[in-house]
Amino acid sequence: MRGSRAIGLATMVVSAASNQVGAAVGAHAFPVIGPAGVVAVRQVVAAAVLLPVARPPLHRFRWAQWWPTILLGLVFATMNLSLYTAVDRVGLGLAVTLEFLGPLGVALAGSRTRKDLICAVGVAAGVYVLVLPHGGSDWPGIGCGLVAAGCWASYILLNRLLGQRLPGLQAPAAATTVSALVYLPVLALTPVTGASLLSAIGAGMFSSVIPYAADVIALRRVPPRFFGVMMSVHPVFAALAGLVLLGEALRPHEWLGILIVIGINAYAADIRPNSQDIGSRRPSSAPVSRKS
């Protein structure tokens, strides 16, 4: 069991690093094709790679498989657009830290202890320090980050459900196809240049294909609550990717807010297995698989 969780932890780190590098690469195309254009290319690239690899038998899907697949596709479409809009308005580090509240909410919702209450209050304080609301705050950008947070929470739960109903990479492949179909009109109306197209394709590979595959492996080995807590590495990688690839220098209060959020999650990561976690690791008759 320890070896399985170690593999899950390693794949979560790979997923987080790849995701934030992809977001930074995709941001280079924002001035030309905008966040929506980058998301459109990203979703089409992800579907083009995942469909032939996973080969989901879409014509044989039952309604119990279709409805969470469609919901996950819509979550992909909304999550990526809201996150990239937030990145464009408030920067990568702040946007991803706000988005991280989604998986943290999943982690805290799995328990009812005093420790969880302390974590919730601590994270709220960390986010307040990070944002430091004032009259000049970019509230639409902050709001988009919070929408992405809600989508990320839904992503974790829907992937866990689909992992019990579809084997391997079939769930993310099918859901990405749904999202790509939603964005086809955007792609058709978006004029692209060679450089912007390459950046958007890079975003598709680093922020969709690699993380989707890594998350499938991770959620086969760890419960959603543990997954949600350990996603605290995302703000760190986002800040570093923003600094190195986008030249975004965070202000002292932003670093402090990120460190508070990460510190709270390090405290929360001391998770003892509960009955929900034990139940989630019981063998099932269907293979278990598991973002954008």
Rank of each mutant, 00 (worst) to 15 (best):
A24K: 01
A24M: 08
A24S: 07
A27R: 03
H28N: 12
A29Q: 07
F30V: 14
P31D: 06
P35E: 08
P35N: 05
P35F: 08
P35L: 04
A36M: 14
G37I: 04
G37F: 13
G37M: 10
V39Q: 04
A40V: 12
A40P: 13
V41P: 10
R42N: 14
Q43G: 09
V45P: 01
L50C: 09
L50R: 07
P52V: 09
P52G: 03
V53M: 10
A54D: 05
R55V: 09
R55T: 04
P56L: 00
P57D: 14
L58I: 14
H59T: 01
H59D: 12
H59E: 14
F61E: 07
F61C: 06
R62I: 03
W63V: 01
W63A: 14
Q65A: 06
Q65M: 03
W67V: 03
T69V: 15
I70R: 01
I70W: 07
L71F: 11
L72T: 05
L72H: 02
G73D: 13
G73Q: 11
A77F: 06
T78C: 13
M79W: 10
N80H: 14
L81I: 05
S82Q: 00
L83S: 06
T85D: 14
V87K: 10
V87H: 05
R89Y: 11
V90E: 11
G91V: 04
G91Q: 02
G93V: 02
A95H: 08
A95P: 00
A95E: 09
V96F: 11
T97D: 07
L98V: 06
L98C: 07
L98Y: 10
E99F: 04
G102L: 14
G105Q: 10
G105C: 14
G105H: 03
V106Q: 12
A107I: 09
R112Y: 11
R112L: 10
T113D: 03
K115C: 05
D116P: 02
D116N: 13
I118S: 11
I118V: 13
I118Q: 09
C119S: 09
G122V: 03
V123T: 11
A125V: 13
A125L: 15
G126M: 07
Y128F: 15
V129D: 00
V129T: 08
L130A: 12
V131R: 02
L132V: 12
L132E: 12
P133T: 10
P133D: 09
P133S: 05
H134C: 08
G136K: 11
G136Q: 15
D138N: 15
D138A: 10
D138G: 03
G141M: 13
G141Q: 06
I142C: 02
G143K: 11
V147Y: 05
A148S: 07
A149V: 08
A149S: 15
C151I: 06
S154D: 02
S154E: 03
L157S: 08
L158H: 13
L158M: 12
N159K: 05
L161N: 07
L161V: 14
L161G: 00
L161A: 04
R165L: 15
R165M: 04
L166K: 06
